[in-house]
């Protein structure tokens, strides 16, 4: 990982590759980030260990938890009832504790979680018009597009057009219900289990519940196990997995 080839890294428009050991130029954001973290630790606001532990917590979050949650709700009527009644308790039952890692939850996600139950005539989609509120404990970090003013401006006013841009065309007998998660509740969509999945295991079902289905900009389909591929804006020095 230490040796990098600029030409093959996919970052050839930049001066640096992702894991270059020697840094020739730092960005203003990197400088400010380091300066603030150093000062905060030196002043005793938090410790380097706090920062490391929280980073570990963030790095293990992924949308797979949400996929399993939905698959389980499709298969187990009792779990489904619990999930709709008390989604925090249902999360705990499947191993996601919203009180982690601080004992009172993550500061930005709070501990109020609600499942939005789709029916053949109601389709939910989530947004936060004011910032980017998103159920991180269930889905991990939000996708970039979810945070853009563009998505936030338009989905609450032209939802059918925006959903169509995601490839989701809804008929007129389906009510579109946009959930603007502007306060402490975090939301996730419980889609309708699609036809053609009879007899499937929880693992099989979880595979077709992609992150976009849980936001509500896609519907689960047999055979579709990943979100639509979008252009990826590369990082100068991306987060490394090690």
């Amino acid at each position: 990982m230490a040796e990098t080839d600029l030409g093959a890294s996919g970052h050839d428009t930049h001066q640096h590759a992702g894991t270059a050991p020697m840094v020739e130029e730092v960005t203003d954001f990197e400088v400010l980030e380091i300066a603030l973290r150093e000062l905060a630790i030196e002043k005793g606001l938090f410790t380097a260990e706090d920062h490391r532990r929280y980073t570990e917590h963030v790095e293990q979050l992924e949308p797979a938890a949400g996929s399993r949650f939905v698959a389980k709700a499709w298969l187990d009527p009792e779990f489904r009832r619990l999930a709709l009644d008390d989604a925090i308790a249902a999360s705990r039952e499947m191993g996601v504790d919203w009180l982690h890692p601080t004992g009172f939850g993550t500061p930005s996600d709070f501990t109020a979680f609600e499942l939005l139950e789709d029916t053949p005539t109601v389709h939910h989609v989530i947004v936060c018009t004011l910032c980017s509120c998103y159920p991180r404990p269930m889905l991990g970090m939000s996708p970039e597009w979810y945070r853009t003013p563009n998505y936030r401006r338009r989905i609450v006013r032209w939802p059918r057009q925006v959903l169509a841009e995601f490839g989701l065309y809804l008929s007129e007998d389906v009510e579109v219900r946009v959930e603007d998660s502007n306060s402490k509740h975090r939301f996730m969509v419980l889609p309708v289990r699609p036809d053609g999945t009879e007899g499937w295991s929880e693992e099989q079902l979880a595979e077709i519940v992609t992150r976009d289905c849980l936001i509500g900009v896609a519907l689960p389909k047999p055979g579709v196990t990943s979100d639509a591929v979008r252009p990826l804006h590369p990082a100068i020095r991306p987060v490394t997995s090690d």
Partner: peptide, 10 residues
């Protein structure tokens, strides 16, 4: 609607 790779500083 695009995806974005996350910077370490982010």
């Amino acid at each position: 609607f695009e995806d974005k790779e996350e910077e370490e500083w982010e």
